[in-house]
Structure formats: structure tokens, C-alpha cells
Design a protein around this nucleic acid. Structure first.
Length: 426
RNA sequence: GGAGAGGUAGCGAAGCGGUCAUAACGCGGCGGUCUUGAAAACCGUUUGAGGUCAAACUCACAAGGGUUCGAAUCCCUUCCUCUCCGCCA
């Protein structure tokens, strides 16, 4: 969400930015919101004036009453009534215009970073860097569910019976591996100075509408029946929600947090749930990182964040690459973002395992996350990134660590979480 | 789930229809006086949002409605916290 003052003084920059994002239909919104904003401020100014008059006359009434000057009091009462008559209509207008302005401001995209490549959609995202040699073994790498099943590690049939498509039972060493990866990810981030959090897994609608658009809410969030609660789609929701309407002392920054949570997603829309597998599912678990920092530090943190994910995957011998989101594929709130993709020796291509985003001050402005500085308060910058989401990352893990005999190697860092095992065998 | 008590600045807390709500009083923070330095004492300062060159002014007393010329104060709805009881990992 942009600062309306910025939009007012720099409408051309805002329009240019919209063009870069190929959202031509939104260009007219800029002039429209400027006009509505002017109307709103005019209404507000007039209303403020009337409210001021009412306040001072009401005060006088009190004084008249105390002195027993009944006629003067009655007179003044009539004056206030007249003022209230005009004010009533004005206040309705004021409220409506304010809501309308905000509604438009919410869909005007954030100014993207100069470094963001220009492109229409995800097909024009740009590979930035590869880490590790993408390796294809001599033998054929089976589909990940087949690998898991051969190790008695997954039961999708039972999950369909109890919960439907998009759920899974993990079992035995595969389930243990899943937990081991999360534990390792947690410690990995703690070692890098992040504070570990386990947040609420349900949040109020108030928080939901703060952290996402209505469309996202419809397509992602599960509602608890009879309660004003939603299952979180990612721990970012509760972790950022924690800072809503707060003022953070400058010296407490940066906040570097890493949180674990299960994530629940309806996955309504474009991709939907695949028939067989754990790539896109209704429920998964994720270790996340969140940074709240000063504006001047967010660029540096962005680079540190995606680097953390790359280092994590590399420590498990999984080749990865970073893929930068082009302007058209970048969500409206984001200044810059990239996906971390893992190598799939079976598909012989990279696939998304995490996403790193710098939201600039847009999310903070929307949610009222401010920093208390020496010369006044200002909006913080917020960033988030996936450390690892095990069910999906298991695909990369199993494919890259599979041996021809069907056993799976456990890289050294995970062994202490796997009871010392160096291999999972049939 | 039942019964009671509450929600006011960073914290504690007064105010319970107007003339002490920017908000008393206390603590904490910041600046200063005094001191070789510190403590103590004393003086000053210390909410946020909008608005303005700066003011004036407006808004916010958990949230949302209502009554009133005027609401922190009265009424209604919702949320939250605490204590006790019940239930329960």
C-alpha cells in the first residue's frame, strides 16, 4: 500500500510503475483516487470546522446552565442542532470517501525496485544464480510418491478416506525425516541469530483481512465454524499480525524471527490440488523467517534472507537456483521477490521450494507497523522468506539423495535428528 | 461453560454527564540544576493519527452502535484480561 501523499505528489511515477507491471486497467485509478482524496479532505476539513464549533458551543451551554441563564442555553442548543444537521450528511460522505480511497489504494501496486526485471508473467521470471551442479543419475528416478511408498513412508489412500484429496499420512523413517528437516531448519536459523517462535495457528478475521486481499482470503483460508477464527495459511500471517498497530523502538530493530507452523490452504483456483503427491496439498508444515527492520536495511536483509535458504538446501546437497520474479508476476505489495527452486533429477528441472519477499513499507503502512525514531515515527520495512516446507522439499530431498538400490542417503547435518542413521533402507 | 471484577499514555492508576483529558497522582524514560563523579533532591519534558510553513483546529478512553446541545462517564452488542468454580491435553 502506497503513501497517498507520495501518490499525490508523484502520480507519474505511480502510473509508470503500474505500466511496468502490465496492469494497464489500473492506470486510471491514480487520477480517480487523487480526485476522491481531494473530495474526502474537503469534506473532512469542513466537518472538522463544524465539530470545532459544536465543541465550543457545547462548552458554553455548560457554563450557561451553571449560571442559570436558561434562555442563552436554549439558544445555543438550537445552534448546535443546526450544526449537527449539516454535520450528519457530511460525516456520512466523509466515511464513504475515506473507505473508497483506501479501497483503491489497496489495489494500486507498490513501487517495484529498479532491479526488478520487466516481464508480463511467470514465464518471464529470470534465473539469477545456480548453486550446486544439477545432477542426473544413470538410473531412472521414480516419482516421489513411489519413492516414499517403497520405503513405507506415505499413505495417500488412507488420507483420502479420512480427509479427502490433498492430505497425507507420512510414516516411519519418512515421517521422521520430515520432523528432522524441521528441527534442523529451526536450529539452522537459531544459529544465524533468529529468534524461534511457535505462533497461534488460528487468527481472527480482523488479522486475516489485514494481511491479505479478499480474493486471497477466499482462495486460501479455512474458517472455523461458529468462531471468528481462521486456520493460518502460513506462519507469516500470525507473525506479522503480532505487530499490527504497534510502534517499535528503533533500538529493538531489526526483529529477526523464525517461526514454525502447520499451514492450511484451500488451494482454490489456478493450480488446485494434484491427484497424487505432496507437491500441492491442503496441509503442510513450514519453517519461516520474518524480518522487521529500518527502511535503509531492507535491501541488505533481502539478500541475507534468500541466501539463508540457499545455504540450507546446499547443506543437504540439494542443487538450487534463485529465480527472480519479474514485474508482472510480482504481487502488488512487494518491492522485490525471488523464488528459491530446488533441482529435480526426475523432471530435470528446478521447482519452487521457497519464496523470499521484500515488502518495503507497504505491508507496514497497511498494518500500522511503525518505528519510534528520534525525530518522530515512521513505517518499518518487512520481509519474509521460507526456510523450508518439508512435504514439498522431501520431493527434492528424496530425488537428490536416492541410490540406485532404492535407499536414501541422509546428509551429515540431519543424522543427529535421525538417530544417527546415515541411510534409509527398504 | 458458570459467578464476579476489570479494559484510560511505556507501566500503575484517578476521573464515573459539561468548568483538571493531553488526561490528575505515582513509577519509568529523556534534558537540566547541584556534585570531583554518582546517588538523593529539585526544575523541566515525555501518546498517537490527520491538518498547517508554523499554528489554530479535528479525531482516538478495548471495538462498534445508541441516548444527549454535550459521553471516558448512561444504554445496547461484540472482543479481551484477571479471580474463583467446573471441564480438559
Amino acid at each position: 500500500m502506497l503513501d497517498i501523499k507520495f501518490l499525490r505528489t508523484n502520480p507519474d511515477i505511480v502510473k509508470e510503475n503500474i505500466k511496468k507491471k502490465f496492469q494497464f486497467e489500473k492506470i486510471e485509478l491514480v487520477d480517480k483516487v487523487i480526485e476522491l482524496d481531494k473530495e474526502y479532505r474537503d469534506a473532512k476539513n469542513r466537518a472538522d470546522e463544524l465539530r470545532g464549533q459544536r465543541n465550543s458551543i457545547s462548552k458554553q451551554i455548560g457554563m450557561f446552565m451553571a449560571k442559570g441563564q436558561k434562555d442563552d442555553a436554549e439558544n445555543a442548543k438550537q445552534q448546535v442542532k443546526d450544526i449537527n444537521g449539516e454535520l450528519l450528511a457530511l460525516e456520512v460522505k466523509e466515511t464513504e470517501l475515506e473507505a473508497e480511497v483506501r479501497k483503491i489504494m489497496l489495489v494500486i501496486p507498490n513501487i517495484i525496485d529498479d532491479s526488478v526485471p520487466i516481464g508480463k508473467d511467470d514465464s518471464e521470471n529470470v534465473e539469477i544464480e545456480k548453486f550446486g551442479e544439477p545432477f542426473v543419475p544413470d538410473f531412472e528416478v521414480p516419482y516421489h510418491v513411489d519413492i516414499m511408498e517403497s520405503l513405507n513412508g506415505v499413505d495417500l489412500d488412507s488420507a483420502r478416506k479420512t480427509s479427502g484429496n490433498g492430505f497425507y499420512y507420512l510414516s516411519g523413517d519418512i515421517a521422521r525425516l520430515h520432523s528432522a528437516i524441521l528441527s534442523y531448519a529451526r536450529d539452522f536459523m537459531i544459529d544465524r541469530g533468529f529468534t524461534y517462535y511457535i505462533p497461534p495457528f488460528m487468527i481472527r478475521s480482523e488479522v486475516v483481512t489485514g494481511v491479505m486481499s479478499f480474493a486471497e482470503m477466499e482462495n486460501m483460508m479455512y474458517k472455523i465454524e461458529g468462531e471468528d477464527l481462521y486456520l493460518i495459511g502460513t506462519s507469516e500471517h500470525s507473525m506479522i499480525g503480532k505487530f499490527i498497530d504497534s510502534i517499535i523502538p528503533e533500538e529493538e530493530l531489526p526483529k529477526t524471527l523464525t517461526s514454525y507452523s502447520p499451514c492450511f490452504r484451500k488451494e482454490v483456483g489456478a493450480h488446485g490440488i494434484e491427484e497424487r503427491g505432496v507437491y500441492r496439498i491442503h496441509q503442510f508444515e513450514k519453517q519461516e523467517m520474518i524480518v522487521v527492520c529500518k527502511p535503509e536495511d531492507s535491501k541488505a536483509w533481502y539478500d541475507k534472507l534468500w541466501q539463508n535458504s540457499v545455504d540450507f538446501f546446499r547443506s543437504l546437497d540439494i542443487p538450487v537456483r534463485t529465480l527472480e520474479c519479474c514485474s508482472g508476476d510480482l504481487a502488488d505489495l512487494k518491492v522485490k521477490s525471488c523464488d528459491v527452486e530446488a533441482w529435480s533429477p526426475r523432471q530435470k528441472k528446478y521447482f519452487e521450494v521457497g519464496s523470499c519477499s521484500n515488502l518495503g513499507d507497504a505491508q507496514a503502512r497497511r498494518l500500522g507497523i511503525r518505528i519510534k525514531g528520534k525525530d518522530g515515527n515512521y513505517f518499518a520495512h518487512t520481509l519474509n522468506n521460507t526456510v523450508v516446507a518439508p512435504p514439498r522439499m522431501l520431493i527434492a530431498f528424496l530425488e537428490n539423495n536416492l541410490n540406485e538400490d532404492g535407499s536414501v542417503n541422509i546428509p551429515e547435518p540431519l543424522r543427529m535428528y535421525m538417530g544417527g542413521k546415515s541411510k534409509i533402507v527398504k
